[in-house]
């Protein structure tokens, strides 16, 4: 379908505005993370300044961010792996046996306000002396990532032709064997999508870690929040901290763009 030149020109202008509006704040954040606080206060040095790595040095060494990066990585990784181990077979059953009511129960997790679960969790886990430990953080992040995995994988299994499994049964495989040797290998792209999405959501999660993490198990979003004290804000350090948490996830999204998009839009276009 051909479009008129006037429309094409309009599209270029409009989309340029959109891209600038979306990226400029992020670029501003990263730029500020390389500025001294004097330069941040000097509005004349908006984009021309002599870059410094002091903010990163402060954040990574003094503020203990190396440890928080490790915490975030470990929690997001463990929550993702466990969600896939539990979620993929469950999604398979729910798709193949049409267990829509059970699926609805799992998907309720997307709807329930997290705060309403935090008080009971806090009570139970503090009695078990688990608050502040990694296990409770991982469990709470699974509350976000498991429904995500089930949701994405159900859509994926729905789209896989059942004939492949039937052929495998005729060839003598058991049902579980057909799942393990035929369906699962074919589902790798779906599992990758679900895994990447669940990692991103866990990495970005703030509220659960705010309540359930301890001084040694703090994840990056909580560490950034704690960076703002009651005294005046160290803007350079804060922007370095914000960049440390955002840049890796944006890089991941850049390289596996296709998976992120298909995960975010999973199930949006079918009835």
């Amino acid at each position: 379908m051909k479009s008129r030149p006037a429309y094409r020109a309009f599209r270029v202008v409009a989309l340029t505005v959109v891209v600038i509006a979306l990226l400029a704040p992020l670029i501003w954040m990263v730029a500020a993370s390389f500025k001294t606080n004097v330069d941040i206060y000097d509005t004349g040095k908006a984009l021309v300044f002599s870059p410094t790595l002091d903010n990163y040095a402060n954040v990574l060494e003094q503020a203990n961010y190396v440890q928080f990066i490790g915490n975030s990585l470990w929690v997001a990784f463990a929550a993702t792996v466990l969600s896939i181990v539990l979620g993929v077979p469950a999604a398979y059953s729910m798709s193949r046996f049409n267990m829509r009511k059970s699926a609805l129960v799992v998907l309720m997790a997307r709807v329930i306000p997290g705060v309403s679960l935090l008080v009971p969790w806090y009570y139970v886990f503090s009695n078990l002396k688990m608050v502040g430990g990694f296990s409770v953080l991982i469990l709470s992040h699974m509350f976000v990532s498991l429904p995500l995995v089930v949701y994405i994988m159900m859509g994926y299994f729905d789209s896989l032709p059942i004939e492949l499994e039937e052929a495998a049964l005729v060839d003598g495989l058991t049902h579980i064997g057909a799942f393990r040797r035929i369906t699962l290998p074919l589902s790798i792209p779906g599992v990758a999508t679900a895994g990447i999405l669940s990692f991103i959501f866990s990495w970005n999660n703030f509220m659960f870690a705010l309540v359930l993490s301890g001084a040694d198990t703090k994840t990056l979003p909580v560490a950034i929040f704690d960076f703002v004290g009651y005294a005046s804000i160290d803007w350079g350090g804060l922007m370095a901290a914000a960049s440390v948490v955002t840049l890796p996830i944006m890089l991941i999204a850049l390289f596996v763009q296709k998976y992120v998009v298909s995960g975010l839009t999973a199930g949006a276009t079918k009835g």
Partner: peptide, 15 residues
């Protein structure tokens, strides 16, 4: 378009 979407909300707030 994908970038704001995956950015950590707390960091976005600080930014």
């Amino acid at each position: 378009i994908l970038m704001p979407l995956v950015a950590t909300p707390v960091a976005v707030g600080m930014m």
